[in-house]
Simulated scan of single mutants.
Amino acid sequence: MQRYDLAVVGAGIVGLAHALAAARRGQRVVVIDRDAAANGASIRNFGFVTVTGQAAGDVWQLARRSATVWAEVAEAAAIPIEQRGLLLTARRPEAEAVLDAFLATDMGSGCRRLSPRDLARDWPMVADMRAALWSPHDLRIESRLAIPRLAAWLREAHGVTFAYGTAVHAVAQGRLDTAEGAVAADRIVLCPGDDWATLFPDVYAAAGITRCTLQMLRLAPPGWRIAAPVMGDLSMVRYAGYADLPEAAALRARLEVEAAEMLADGVHLIVVQSADGSLIVGDSHHYAATPPPFAPAAVEARILAAYAECLGTPPPVIERWTGTYAWGARHHLIAAPAPDVRLVVVTSGTGASTAFALAERVIDEWIGIA
């Protein structure tokens, strides 16, 4: 039985981030996943590596570092960066006040304010807005392409072993029991996302983790291109980097009157564009331990209404899907349920934005790198 320095359970972005961090530090790594290919939250998202708007402090720092790693990995693994930056639009005066308050914080460094005249010149597809914030700190990859390419590059460039289609049903000191036999490893990191039924479900229960489900859409190419992802007023009461500002209270109060159904469905606008010109648009947020598999038309209509408020009449919907992720009150969970075993779960829906830096922290502390 071959022995590894580190065994990673889960080949989503959190698991791959730990594999990268360990491999860069000279560790022999195996990644084990029950599915034949990644098909969970890591590919059912925008591919939007969001720095701007993350919660001030530690999470923002994790996002900044992770964006740097993404840029390094994308170049090495031939993963196209489809878009760079962020355009945060402000339609209501209360949203404009939040935008200005954010620009005055340390997190607003490098960002700039755009006037209606700037928008008319450079972003003519954007509907009538009072102002916008331009940030250079964010980037966007195509998740469906990036996750498989990242895994292939880890295999080819770093010698990481992958065992897909292999379910892990028990973990003990230095050993994983799988459907294909035992795997020996000095250390084990579990990154199962919202699959808590098999391994250490008591840890999830104690942390109060549930599931968040969201609806996503792909729209036909609109005939124009946006250089960066676009967000709107609703995002300013959802993303903590804006929502925690005192100025956000007035915006939330107005939205509770004007957009109560959107708030109830957790709808806020993100629009990104793929290489073929199509737009990925979302999303919504509902919470349950076992979410229903259904995607209500009413929620989709609210997502499209948020789009129309910012970018006009939406093109036809050409694809729909839902996703789920583990959700908790904090950004992430790191637990040690057994000696030399770590359970690492991003519980905020920001795995693509923060996992690389979080994994570096876990691995460095674990193997004693200062």
Score class of each variant (00 low, 15 high):
residue 198 T to C: 06
residue 188 I to F: 15
residue 183 V to C: 01
residue 182 A to L: 02
residue 181 G to E: 05
residue 189 V to M: 15
residue 187 R to P: 02
residue 167 A to F: 06
residue 193 G to Y: 05
residue 165 G to M: 12
residue 160 V to W: 04
residue 188 I to R: 04
residue 178 T to A: 03
residue 171 V to C: 05
residue 188 I to N: 06
residue 183 V to W: 00
residue 181 G to Q: 06
residue 184 A to V: 02
residue 186 D to L: 05
residue 162 F to Q: 01
residue 190 L to F: 10
residue 153 W to V: 09
residue 165 G to L: 11
residue 179 A to W: 01
residue 174 G to I: 12
residue 189 V to A: 12
residue 190 L to T: 11
residue 176 L to P: 02
residue 183 V to I: 06
residue 191 C to M: 04
residue 159 G to T: 07
residue 154 L to G: 11
residue 168 V to G: 01
residue 179 A to N: 12
residue 168 V to L: 00
residue 173 Q to H: 09
residue 154 L to H: 12
residue 171 V to T: 02
residue 176 L to V: 00
residue 163 A to S: 06
residue 177 D to N: 04
residue 199 L to D: 15
residue 200 F to V: 08
residue 193 G to W: 06
residue 157 A to F: 07
residue 163 A to E: 13
residue 197 A to K: 15
residue 190 L to R: 10
residue 199 L to C: 14
residue 176 L to E: 01
residue 161 T to V: 03
residue 154 L to I: 13
residue 156 E to F: 14
residue 175 R to I: 14
residue 184 A to K: 02
residue 161 T to N: 03
residue 189 V to C: 12
residue 187 R to C: 07
residue 157 A to L: 14
residue 153 W to Y: 05
residue 190 L to G: 07
residue 157 A to M: 08
residue 161 T to P: 00
residue 195 D to N: 07
residue 164 Y to S: 14
residue 169 H to M: 13
residue 153 W to N: 15
residue 157 A to N: 11
residue 154 L to Q: 14
residue 197 A to F: 09
residue 156 E to H: 15
residue 158 H to E: 08
residue 184 A to Q: 08
residue 181 G to C: 04
residue 197 A to L: 06
residue 182 A to I: 00
residue 182 A to G: 01
residue 188 I to D: 05
residue 195 D to K: 05
residue 185 A to P: 03
residue 168 V to S: 00
residue 185 A to E: 02
residue 157 A to D: 12
residue 160 V to A: 09
residue 162 F to I: 01
residue 172 A to H: 05
residue 168 V to W: 00
residue 163 A to Y: 07
residue 156 E to M: 09
residue 197 A to Y: 13
residue 192 P to C: 04
residue 159 G to E: 09
residue 200 F to P: 14
residue 162 F to N: 00
residue 194 D to R: 10
residue 193 G to A: 13
residue 181 G to F: 03
residue 193 G to P: 11
residue 160 V to H: 13
residue 162 F to D: 00
residue 195 D to I: 14
residue 185 A to T: 03
residue 196 W to I: 07
residue 165 G to Q: 09
residue 197 A to E: 08
residue 196 W to V: 11
residue 191 C to W: 03
residue 164 Y to F: 15
residue 189 V to L: 15
residue 189 V to S: 11
residue 178 T to S: 08
residue 159 G to R: 15
residue 191 C to R: 08
residue 200 F to K: 11
residue 158 H to Y: 10
residue 189 V to T: 11
residue 181 G to R: 02
residue 164 Y to G: 12
residue 197 A to D: 11
residue 167 A to I: 03
residue 181 G to V: 00
residue 192 P to H: 03
residue 196 W to E: 09
residue 178 T to V: 05
residue 187 R to W: 14
residue 162 F to H: 02
residue 172 A to N: 09
residue 153 W to R: 12
residue 194 D to N: 10
residue 188 I to H: 05
residue 159 G to S: 04
residue 172 A to M: 14
residue 200 F to Q: 15
residue 177 D to F: 01
residue 179 A to T: 07
residue 161 T to R: 05
residue 162 F to A: 01
residue 169 H to T: 05
residue 165 G to C: 15
residue 155 R to F: 13
residue 180 E to I: 04
residue 175 R to Y: 07
residue 162 F to L: 03
residue 178 T to R: 01
residue 171 V to S: 01
residue 187 R to K: 09
residue 163 A to P: 14
residue 164 Y to D: 11
residue 161 T to K: 01
residue 159 G to P: 13
residue 154 L to A: 10
residue 179 A to Y: 02
residue 185 A to H: 03
residue 163 A to H: 06
residue 167 A to W: 06
residue 194 D to L: 13
residue 187 R to I: 04
residue 159 G to F: 09
residue 192 P to Q: 04
residue 163 A to G: 11
